[in-house]
């Protein structure tokens, strides 16, 4: 796992230096959120906050994850990585982890935006909210990281990543939205238990599947 840590460290150094992913992601989320607000009755928008939260997150997140792989293709650095004597699973773990970190930070900003713009009661139970967000984030990052390794190689990559990931994400979106709804309306984590269990299962299945199948996607 030390190889995974080194790749993750390299990715975070690159992100800190360019701040491309995070800044782009935050602005994109703001724009999607504003578009939602304009498309809805602003007064009643608070009820839609859980749905708006996850739709915004998923679409902005897909863009950011795609970009993470494009970064590796400049100068063919990706091939340099493949030449290193490390397990391909470690590359997946590193890429997924850096996506989780960047998207996690973006999620915190999204929470602030939801509170300010839609009046969502995110702060009612901050710890529970973070827990729900984290479960949704991990499963999303696992699937999107796996399929971004595919789409980055395709000509129609901007279109293919959402096509590949969105249908598979349906269970995650359903459960994340419902769990968010429970927490935002003041319910306890226990009352969102069923949703959280599906989310956790989703996270485990696709993290392991991604780790195991990544090798299949990087060989040429």
């Amino acid at each position: 796992m030390s190889a995974a840590w080194r790749i993750l460290h390299k990715d975070l150094v690159l992100e800190l230096r360019t701040r491309e992913a995070l800044s782009g992601l935050v602005v994109l989320m703001l724009l999607v959120l504003l578009t939602f607000t304009f498309a809805m009755d602003p007064e009643g928008a608070g009820n839609a906050a859980p749905a708006v939260q996850w739709v915004t997150f998923v679409f902005a997140g897909l863009m950011a994850i795609q970009r993470g792989f494009l970064l590796e293709r400049e100068n063919g650095a990706w091939y340099g990585l493949l030449l290193c004597p490390v397990d391909r699973g470690a590359i997946f773990v590193a890429k997924m982890a850096s996506n989780v970190i960047v998207l996690g930070l973006a999620q915190l900003v999204l929470m602030v935006l939801l509170t300010v713009l839609l009046g969502a009661s995110v702060l009612a139970a901050p710890a529970a909210m973070i827990f729900v967000n984290f479960l949704g984030l991990v499963g999303f990052a696992a699937l999107a990281t796996l399929f971004a390794a595919i789409s980055v190689r395709l000509r129609a990559r901007e279109m293919m990543l959402p096509l590949l990931v969105l249908p598979l994400l349906v269970p995650l979106v359903i459960c994340a939205v419902e769990a968010s709804r429970v927490v935002m309306s003041g319910g306890s984590l226990a009352s969102a238990g069923a949703w959280l269990r599906v989310l956790a299962t989703f996270d485990v299945i696709f993290s392991v599947a991604g780790w195991m199948m990544f090798e299949q996607l990087v060989q040429e």
């Binding site: 349906v170 269970p171 359903i174 419902e178 599906v198 299962t201 989703f202 299945i205």
Partner: peptide, 9 residues
């Protein structure tokens, strides 16, 4: 996962 979540939903 789809089956369980859709049922719950």
């Amino acid at each position: 996962l789809i089956q369980v979540s859709v049922r719950l939903w």
